[in-house]
Amino acid sequence: MRPELELISEWIRPGARVLDLGCGDGALLAYLREHRQVSGYGLEIDSTNMLQCIQAGVNVIHADLEAGLADFGESSFDYVIMTQTLQAVRQTEALLDEMLRVGRQGIVTFPNFGFWRCRVQIALQGLMPVVKTLPYQWYNTPNIHLFTLYDFEQLCRRKHIDILQRMVLDHAHRPRLGPKLWPNLLGEIALYRLGRA
């Protein structure tokens, strides 16, 4: 987790206002508060996670992302962040729109389904892929939308979302040469910084 926090925090302006969608135990917000002096909130639906945020002194708001972000005003945050969550929500498109309505910029991370191991498992074994970044079986996975880097970038183009920055990493969030050269084939995790003019 640590390297991902560091990479994201490099994209965050100090003192910014941040909304973290599906904030988990609040580790990212706690990290950003300490290293980037950000203020803001995490949204979380899981009670155990919510409790951990509260214990850690991270502002957490119990909320269902599927219901949208109607409680939040337009451009009321500098960044709206969604780490490893986009693939697990039903309203993917609507949530991307909401993200860029509420935030001036969006930061998204997700597992790349185009990673070569995924391709090999489905092509040669004929089985749904199980890899480090997608460790679940098809019948118990929370990840209901699987997509590749190219899929995501196509959607961004169609929705007139600007990709301001991209980083493609291995499963341990290391920026290696392979993913840099062949991102959609060798990249396991993608980080995007998004905006909309």
Partner: peptide, 21 residues
């Protein structure tokens, strides 16, 4: 309660909200 939370967020205040089943 969410009305209260929404107003606090709009005012930029520090707030956590828990909905207990």
């Amino acid at each position: 309660s969410r009305e209260i939370v929404r107003a606090l967020v709009r005012a930029g205040r520090e707030v956590s909200y828990a909905e207990i089943p």
